[in-house]
């Protein structure tokens, strides 16, 4: 097996995360249905969080919560990426909520979720 493929398989979390990111990115960019765009956005963000969490995990170590008075840092995983993931989730929740609210208003106004059709209808509205 070539070196390149071997690396992909050893770092399977990262490979999976980037594939998820790619799926989400293309869906958000290309799909015409607004709801599927929002799902794509969440795919994209989940991919990123998986990547971060995988980067912070060190095999065989514990979650960084001290329960038995053991403060030896070599026994715990890196807590920073987990914190970043939590922050990131908050951001993506609020963005998703905003986009969903926008979609509701667009649907109320144009009775469709197809972005191309909505663009067309909005242009006609002006003329």
């Amino acid at each position: 097996m070539p070196e390149f493929l071997k690396n992909l398989f050893t770092n399977y979390y990262e490979t999976g995360a980037v594939i998820l990111f790619g799926i989400g990115f293309t869906t958000l960019l290309m799909h015409r249905n607004l709801l599927k765009k929002i799902i794509g956005l969440n795919f994209m963000d989940s991919g990123l969080y998986l990547f971060l969490a995988a980067k912070g995990y060190i095999a065989g170590r514990l979650a960084p919560i001290i329960t038995n008075g053991d403060t030896d840092p070599t026994k715990y995983v890196n807590p920073i990426p987990t914190g970043l993931v939590l922050t990131g989730i908050v951001v993506s929740v609020s963005v998703t909520a905003f986009l969903l609210a926008l979609t509701c208003r667009l649907y109320d106004k144009f009775h469709t979720l197809d972005i191309d059709e909505i663009t067309y209808l909005a242009r006609k509205e002006r003329e």
Binding site: F21, L28, M44, L48, V95, L99, R126
Partner: peptide, 21 residues
Amino acid sequence: SSGRTLVATTKYLIMSLLGSG
């Protein structure tokens, strides 16, 4: 709030989200 601004906002938001991703 008008149809056009809503559509403009949606497009703006989607492009921005791709960028921040």
